[in-house]
């Protein structure tokens, strides 16, 4: 898998907010069909990196390649058009609308001026069954009646509804119980198995071990290492997160530009 072109490839990414150099020469490769865990301590730059990929605020410099073609992402709309979808931590669902309405929010299917409810409900159902989701009783129940895991499921299903190629998940299991975490991780795994590229932000080493194929570790705005999960132990990942290095993996000195 190392020889095919990555779905998303970042090279030498920099981003500053005023005097704060948040991202320094960051490289990242995300491959289709694999889950790339993005780990790092608070303030390491994970959110900044994700938001830039999602088009919320652009990179200052660096090269972005998507499906082998160089691109610049100016806004969320353009990211969506490329097939990049983000599931934010707060999910951004409307409690007073049902599952179908939430999945199509802002991108409703219409016939003339009227909403085409049957088509939307069918497509929502197909997407959910494509993800082997069987936990929802009815597509017409309001989101306020769903459990945390079910809400996460709806948010993820919304992200894959649009033939998306890269799904970015921000701490999807942070607020969930054991059983629901299991469900959501299975869902994340299925996204990758269906051929999508997945970036998973997580603080939870168990989650990372359970579902990730690759691990990318940010340390103080630099990419300390991007490795395959099988090459490192949990202990080594924790060392990477806290010190930026672990034995011969990670940044070997404190100079700029850490390399894998």
């Amino acid at each position: 898998m190392a020889n095919d072109t990555p779905l998303l490839s970042l090279r030498g990414i920099n981003k500053s907010f005023g005097p704060v150099h948040v991202l320094q020469n960051v490289d990242l490769d995300v491959r289709a069909g694999r889950v790339t865990a993005l780990v790092g301590d608070n303030g390491a730059g994970k959110s900044t990196l994700i938001k830039a990929i999602a088009g919320i605020h652009p990179f200052d410099s660096g090269q972005v390649t998507f499906e082998g073609k160089p691109v610049t992402i100016h806004g969320p709309k353009q990211a969506n058009d490329l097939g990049i979808e983000v599931v934010y931590q707060d999910l951004a669902l409307c409690d007073n609308l049902d599952v179908v309405h939430n999945m199509f929010l802002g991108r409703e299917v219409k016939s003339g001026v009227t909403l085409n409810e049957t088509t939307m409900e069918k497509r929502a159902g197909e997407t959910l069954s494509g993800l082997s989701v069987r936990t929802l009783k009815s597509l017409r129940q309001q989101v306020s009646s769903l459990s945390g895991g079910q809400r996460q499921t709806v948010a993820i299903a919304r992200a894959v509804l649009w033939n998306s190629k890269l799904v970015i998940l921000d701490e999807p299991t942070a607020a969930l119980g054991v059983a629901q975490t299991e469900q959501v991780l299975n869902l994340v795994r299925r996204l990758a198995d269906n051929g999508l590229g997945v970036i998973l932000i997580s603080h939870n080493m168990n989650d990372v071990q359970a579902v990730a194929d690759d691990i990318a570790c940010l340390y103080l705005g630099q990419m300390a290492a991007q490795v395959e999960k099988d090459q490192v132990s949990s202990q080594q990942v924790v060392e990477l997160i806290t010190t930026g290095r672990s034995g011969d993996i990670g940044m070997q000195d404190n100079s700029m530009g850490g390399a894998a």
Partner: peptide, 11 residues
């Protein structure tokens, strides 16, 4: 229902 969600959905 959720103004922020609506905004992010491009409304």
């Amino acid at each position: 229902g959720n103004r922020e969600a609506a905004r992010r959905a491009g409304i």
